[in-house]
């Protein structure tokens, strides 16, 4: 029984980190109506950025956040501004511009292969990492400390995003643009700037996720792909565009992955995840927390 609770807790913690990696995906989809296939690659780039920041400066791994999150915001902002915006302008009248998806896929391949070229295929882990393997003992249960911090980061990031979208002038402008880009223009909102900012925010959250992952996860050029596929399932499960949905979707998957192996072979848990995914698509296509009226 105790094992079960321990697994459940660790599953929730890891799941919330999955949710954190998917937050950017759901923000970008919510605003641009585009599935960003480069999201995993952006996470991978963030992980390298975090890794090198820590490796070169010798800082505490979490201190990398002050560099990685702003740097990734700028990276995402200009990626959208320079690479994606021209396609958007060409498809001005389309609500869900499909060609942008192709472009993000191109960005994914370029980033992954560029990283392979620059840093090689080897797995990297932080040396002298104060967090590696750290466990919190509660009675007989062991809880991973870096995952606990990841959970805190996920909850804080999601709440921060929620408040930003609900309460600030810019956040309201982003929501308005996501609902009707032409009407938003008539309110004096520069829709392309909003897209840049949304992309920047989405990429910066990948940066936050990366900083929490690097202390206990290997860094390698295709690490993004693992999180990409999970990310897509999470955001569809939780409801595309829903911030709380991404977090809860991640936690559901984390729970299945960690509690499942107590009852069956670990590989079966994947079948359960995908089975649940299909079931949700059948029963509630808008996702568990998605809004029925739109997407």
């Amino acid at each position: 029984m105790l094992f079960l609770i321990e697994d459940a807790i660790n599953g929730i913690l890891m799941g919330s980190i999955y949710g954190l990696t998917a937050l950017g995906l759901t923000v970008i989809f919510g605003v641009l109506k585009v599935i960003n296939f480069a999201h995993g690659s952006l996470l991978m780039v963030s992980m390298y950025a975090a890794y090198w920041t820590v490796a070169l400066t010798g800082w505490h791994p979490y201190l990398a956040l002050v560099i990685v999150a702003p740097a990734m915001f700028v990276f995402g902002y200009y990626l959208q501004d320079i690479v994606i915006k021209p396609i958007f302008k060409a498809e001005q009248d389309v609500r869900e511009p499909i060609t942008v998806i192709i472009v993000t896929t191109g960005v994914w391949y370029i980033l992954d292969n560029l990283t392979l070229l620059l840093f090689g295929p080897q797995y990297r882990t932080l040396q002298d990492n104060p967090l590696r393997g750290r466990m919190l003992e509660i009675g007989q249960m062991l809880i991973s400390v870096p995952k606990l911090w990841g959970f805190a980061a996920a909850v804080l990031t999601a709440s921060g995003l929620y408040l930003f979208f609900q309460k600030t002038r810019l956040g309201r402008a982003v929501r308005a643009t996501s609902l009707d880009r032409q009407a938003a223009s008539l309110m004096g909102i520069n829709q392309y700037k909003v897209y840049n900012i949304a992309f920047g925010i989405g990429t910066a959250t990948a940066g936050i996720a990366a900083v929490t992952l690097v202390p206990f996860y290997n860094v390698f050029p295709t690490v993004g792909v693992l999180f990409d596929i999970k990310g897509f399932i999470i955001v569809v499960l939780g409801g595309l565009g829903s911030i709380g949905g991404a977090l809860l979707g991640g936690i559901i998957i984390g729970l299945i992955e960690s509690v499942g192996p107590q009852f069956m072979t670990a590989t079966w848990t994947e079948a359960i995840v995908y089975g649940l995914f299909l079931l949700v698509l059948f029963v509630k296509p808008s996702g568990l927390f998605g809004v029925r009226y739109d997407w």
Partner: peptide
């Protein structure tokens, strides 16, 4: 410009 068909931000 107040557009034709109102064009409100429906979910706000």
């Amino acid at each position: 410009h107040v557009p034709e068909g109102r064009r409100l931000f429906s979910l706000m």
